[in-house]
C-alpha cells in the first residue's frame, strides 16, 4: 500500500513538473515585455535594461525556469511584477476566499446531487423521476455566471437576504464571511450538482439491476434499505470519478464567479495578472492550480481503493 501511494506520488510530481514547464513555455510566447509594461511607454532604455536584469529577464530560458520552479518546494513562487510583493503573500488572503468557496460549492454539488440522483433512480420512470431529471437537464444548461446574476436578482436585490457582491472577510466572525460566499457557491455548485445528479441516477439504476440487490431483498431488507445500503455504495464509484473531474471545473469556475460577485479570490488575481501582463504571477498561479487539480485526482484515485475493495492496492487474492 505504502509503495503504491509513493509510486503514485512520484508520478504526480512528474506530471506537475511537466505542467509547470508547459505553463512556463507558454508564458514566453506572451507578447509584450513585462519590464516595458511595468515602466510604461516612455521608459528610458537604460532603466528598462536595469529592470530586465533585476527581474532576471536577461538570463537564459532554462536558468529562469529552474530558478522559478526551484522556489516552489519552499513556498517561494516568485515576486509579482505589478505589486512588487512575493506571490505567496498575495496568495494567502485570497486562498482564504477561494478555498472555502470551492469547498462550499463542492459540498453543495454532492449534497444536492446524491439525494436527488438516488431518489430519481428509485422512482425510475415515475413523475418524481421526470421532474427531478427535467430540473437537472435545465440545471446542466444554465451557465454559472448567469445563475449568479439570477441569484443576485432574487436573493440579494428582491429578498435582501444576502449580499449581492463583495466579501466581508473572516475577521467579523464566520457567519459574516460565509454569508458573502453562499450565493457564489450556489451559482458554482448547482450546475455541477445537476450533472452529478444525472450521473448518480444512472449509476444507481445500474446497481439496482444487479443480482446482489435481489440477494439483499431475499435477506429481508426493505427496498429502501437495499437502495441505500447496497445499491448506493456501489454507485459511488462512478460518482467519485465525476466529482474529481468537477473539481477542475470548479477551480476554473471561480475565475468567472469571483468576477460576477466581485470576490477578492485567487481566480480574480489570475485574471487581473493576465490583464496586467504580470507574467510570473500568472505562471505561478496557473501552475499551482494545475497541481491542485492533479492532486485532487490523486485523492480520488485513493478514494477508489476505499470505495471499491476490488481496486484496493494490496488487497491480495
Amino acid at each position: 500500500m505504502t509503495s503504491y501511494v509513493l509510486g503514485r506520488l512520484f508520478a504526480l510530481l512528474l506530471t506537475t513538473l511537466a505542467a509547470s514547464l508547459i505553463v512556463f513555455l507558454l508564458m514566453q510566447i506572451l507578447p509584450g515585455d513585462p519590464a516595458a509594461v511595468m515602466l510604461g511607454v516612455n521608459a528610458q532604455p537604460e532603466t528598462l535594461a536595469a529592470l530586465r536584469t533585476k527581474l532576471g529577464l536577461d538570463q537564459p530560458l532554462w536558468t529562469r525556469y529552474l530558478d522559478w520552479i526551484g522556489g516552489f518546494p519552499f513556498g517561494d513562487f516568485g515576486v509579482s511584477h505589478t505589486y512588487s510583493t512575493p506571490i505567496s503573500q498575495l496568495l494567502a488572503p485570497r486562498i482564504m476566499v477561494t478555498l472555502p468557496l470551492a469547498l462550499l460549492s463542492m459540498a453543495i454539488s454532492v449534497g444536492v446531487a446524491l439525494p436527488v440522483g438516488v431518489y430519481a433512480a428509485s422512482r425510475r420512470g415515475k413523475p418524481g423521476d421526470f421532474l427531478s431529471m427535467g430540473a437537472a437537464q435545465i440545471g446542466v444548461a444554465i451557465p454559472n455566471f448567469w445563475l449568479g446574476l439570477l441569484l443576485i436578482l432574487f436573493f440579494a436585490l428582491h429578498l435582501r437576504w444576502l449580499p449581492a457582491s463583495g466579501f466581508a472577510g473572516w475577521e467579523d466572525g464566520l457567519w459574516r464571511g460565509l454569508r458573502s460566499l453562499i450565493l457564489p457557491a450556489l451559482a458554482l455548485g448547482l450546475p455541477l450538482a445537476a450533472i452529478l445528479a444525472r450521473v448518480t441516477r444512472s449509476a444507481v439504476i445500474e446497481a439496482l439491476g444487479e443480482d446482489f440487490i435481489r440477494t439483499a431483498r431475499a435477506k429481508g431488507l426493505t427496498s429502501r434499505a437495499a437502495l441505500w445500503r447496497h445499491a448506493t455504495p456501489n454507485a459511488l464509484i462512478p460518482v467519485a470519478t465525476i466529482v474529481g473531474m468537477q473539481f477542475s471545473f470548479l477551480l476554473a469556475g471561480t475565475i468567472i464567479i469571483e468576477n460576477v460577485f466581485n470576490l477578492p479570490g485567487v481566480g480574480r488575481l489570475i485574471f487581473q495578472s493576465i490583464a496586467q501582463r504580470d507574467l510570473v504571477t500568472v505562471q505561478s498561479l496557473v501552475t499551482l492550480l494545475a497541481a491542485c487539480v492533479i492532486f485532487v485526482n490523486f485523492l480520488v484515485d485513493l478514494a477508489y481503493g476505499w470505495l471499491d475493495p476490488r481496486l484496493a492496492a494490496g488487497g491480495g487474492r
Binding site: 510566447i29 506572451l30 477542475s248 476554473a252 475565475i255 468567472i256
Partner: peptide, 16 residues
C-alpha cells in the same frame, strides 16, 4: 491537458 481546467486554458490562450 486535462490537468488544466478548460476555461483556464482558454483564459490563458486568449490572454496570450
Amino acid at each position: 491537458a486535462f490537468a488544466f481546467p478548460a476555461l483556464l486554458t482558454a483564459v490563458i490562450v486568449t490572454a496570450i
